[in-house]
């Protein structure tokens, strides 16, 4: 049923490299979803299965392939923390076409967020970050289903909130909370993409279940300081954008099965323009 409607509305499209492919546009996806009483995400999945590419993903195709795009659309990613890192992360995940997002944060915007938090704005001070991000996702890509939790993640609710996620992006701001998140991800058996920033510096690391991860970096949760040098250096928007871009790219590689990033930590130092890998194993 869906297949016939998709084929009827598909059209030819000449890619920039000269290859001709079959695509379906936004309006057609929405119409078919409405007529069939299903979600636009389901229509896009079916389209990719029969070799029709939703036009909005056409520029992903050369790198991710139709199979990679299909895997992304079928994935659920947890974004824990929707501040500096989380806003950019959420935006990029929606644009690349991760099909389901679980957004977790109990905080509301305040004025000191405006320098770096992508979905904040002068007119929405006091608004829940999860709600602003979910609204933005809906504007960018209505096929992405957002599940919103206005809660602060801790060790009592982490497993409940993250159940069903295929991967989790750590956009938190305290080491204690990050250790709790790492434990929850290990118990759920899903990879976590850690990211942290301070001033012009940031770090990114993919932590697979069973790996030492943050422990290799800081020792145990008890040994780790609660915060780092960000308390004095602050956080800049460009650093948040760069580090979340690395986090999302790592997540996409894992989910689309492009490659399996190793457990090395990327240390990004924008003060001198360097990005180095530090092996922790």
């Amino acid at each position: 049923m869906l297949e016939k409607q998709i084929e009827k509305r598909a059209r030819g499209y000449l890619r920039p490299d000269g290859e001709e492919i079959s695509v379906i546009d936004l309006g057609s996806v929405a119409q078919i979803a409405s007529d069939s009483e299903t979600s636009p995400r389901r229509v896009e999945i079916e389209a990719l299965r029969i070799g029709v590419v939703p036009l909005k993903y056409e520029r992903n195709l050369g790198t991710l392939g139709a199979d990679g795009q299909l895997r992304l659309l079928q994935s659920r990613v947890g974004v824990v923390g929707l501040g500096g890192l989380g806003g950019f992360t959420c935006e990029l995940l929606a644009r690349v076409g991760v099909g389901k997002l679980t957004l977790i944060d109990d905080d509301v915007y305040d004025e000191s967020n405006l320098n770096r938090q992508l979905h904040s704005g002068s007119g929405i001070i006091g608004r829940h970050k999860t709600e602003a991000s979910a609204e933005r996702v809906g504007q960018i890509n209505p096929s992405v289903a957002c599940e919103v939790h206005n809660e602060r993640l801790d060790d009592t609710n982490a497993q409940r909130l993250l159940t069903g996620c295929d991967l989790v992006v750590d956009c938190l701001d305290s080491l204690d909370a990050r250790f709790q998140l790492q434990d929850a991800c290990a118990q759920l058996g899903v990879p976590m993409v850690h990211g942290a920033i301070a001033g012009m510096m940031g770090q990114v690391m993919v932590i697979y279940p069973g790996q030492e991860g943050l422990g290799a970096l800081y020792g145990s949760a008890q040994q780790a300081p609660e915060h780092g040098v960000e308390l004095s250096l602050g956080n800049l928007g460009a650093t948040a954008a760069a580090v979340s871009a690395f986090q999302v790219q790592q997540a996409v590689k894992v989910l689309a099965e492009i490659s399996r990033p190793d457990g090395d930590m990327l240390l990004i130092d924008m003060a001198v323009g360097s990005c180095e890998r530090i092996s922790l194993s």
């Binding site: 501040g83 500096g84 890192l85 701001d173 080491l175 942290a196 920033i197 301070a198 510096m201 040098v229």
Partner: peptide, 12 residues
């Protein structure tokens, strides 16, 4: 030998 400060920011 690598020496760097701990960093943990990203959210608030």
């Amino acid at each position: 030998v690598s020496i760097f400060p701990p960093i943990a920011g990203g959210l608030g």
